[in-house]
Simulated scan of single mutants.
Amino acid sequence: MRFGLVLCLSAVSLAAPTHFLDHAYDWSDELAEFYGKISQYINTAKHNIRAPSACDVSKIALPSYASGLTSPDGLKPVYVALGRGTQNYTCADSSSKTAPVAAGAVARLYNATCIAANYPGMLETLPNLAYKVTLPTNEYASFPPSNIDLMGHHFFYDATTPEFNLNTTPDKQHGIVMTKKGGSIDAPSNALSGEHGAVAWLYLTTTDGTVGNYKSVYRVDTAAGSPPKTCKGMPSAFQMQYAANYYFFGE
């Protein structure tokens, strides 16, 4: 079943420089939940004249269910991004005795900061939706279903250095975040698994080469991305689609 919906939200009902849900999608339980939350927020905003009209990043907090990761104590939230792309892997051969080896990731990052500040419950839902939506052909286009703007790109600078380049255009320069892995926990059992499971949640610390006052990055709310357990029948290099939320903290 396919449908289209134009949903116009005023500043009082959605405190973000975005609009929602004006593309056509396949119906799913995740979309039903997403729509339900939007309906609740709009109804609340209609009865609350003090609803925020801008996003206050000081209200952003790492979700309590990510407590297994090192806490960002003493640091301030800077941005939150929805990541959508691929986790990349290699196989030495195509036998069942060989396991895939992680070979970095490539993803576009979309600015979900205002959603995180005002509607964290909605943010949790986005990766599950984003995983099921194909990236726009135009690299700089906003991303459905929330039509949030491109913020930057995630890739690996080298084999062990995840990079987040947040300098999208000449007038959108948010810095460059070079990181290394500081810790991880398994994705929860209710995470969207995709073909072979959701990739782990990560705590990353910044390293030399970072441009901007960034100190840590958290990857949470992951959807899919894990490889098969063995390389049986797999090519020497392959990709697995994934989505996740990335929280950036600084001093």
Rank of each mutant, 00 (worst) to 15 (best):
R2W: 10
R2F: 11
R2I: 11
L5K: 09
C8Q: 08
L9H: 05
L9T: 12
L14R: 09
P17R: 05
L21M: 12
D22S: 09
Y25A: 05
E30A: 15
E30N: 09
A32K: 12
I42V: 15
N43G: 09
N48L: 12
I49S: 13
I49G: 14
A51R: 14
S53E: 12
D56A: 10
V57R: 15
L62H: 03
Y65I: 02
S67P: 08
G68E: 08
L69F: 08
S71P: 06
K76P: 03
P77T: 04
P77W: 09
V80G: 07
V80M: 01
A81R: 05
R84M: 01
R84P: 00
G85W: 06
G85A: 10
T86H: 14
T86E: 12
Q87W: 04
Q87P: 03
Q87F: 03
N88H: 04
A92D: 14
A99C: 00
V101W: 01
A102Q: 07
A102Y: 10
A103F: 02
L109W: 02
Y110G: 03
N111S: 05
N111F: 00
A112W: 00
C114M: 03
C114A: 04
A116Q: 09
A116V: 02
Y119T: 13
M122R: 04
L123A: 09
P127F: 07
Y131Q: 12
Y131C: 07
P145N: 02
G152F: 04
H154S: 09
H154F: 06
F156Y: 15
Y157L: 15
Y157F: 13
E163P: 02
N165V: 03
L166F: 09
K172E: 12
Q173Y: 01
G175P: 07
G175Q: 07
V177L: 11
M178Y: 10
M178V: 02
T179C: 13
T179N: 01
K181W: 08
K181N: 11
K181I: 14
G182P: 11
I185M: 10
S189Y: 01
N190K: 10
L192I: 12
L192V: 14
S193M: 00
G197Q: 07
G197Y: 06
L202A: 06
D208P: 10
V211A: 11
G212L: 06
K215Y: 05
K215D: 13
V217F: 01
V217A: 08
Y218L: 02
R219H: 12
G225I: 13
S226W: 02
S226Q: 15
K229I: 14
T230H: 08
Q239V: 10
M240L: 13
Y242Q: 07
A244S: 15
A244E: 05
Y247R: 05
F248V: 04
F248C: 05
G250N: 05
G250C: 10
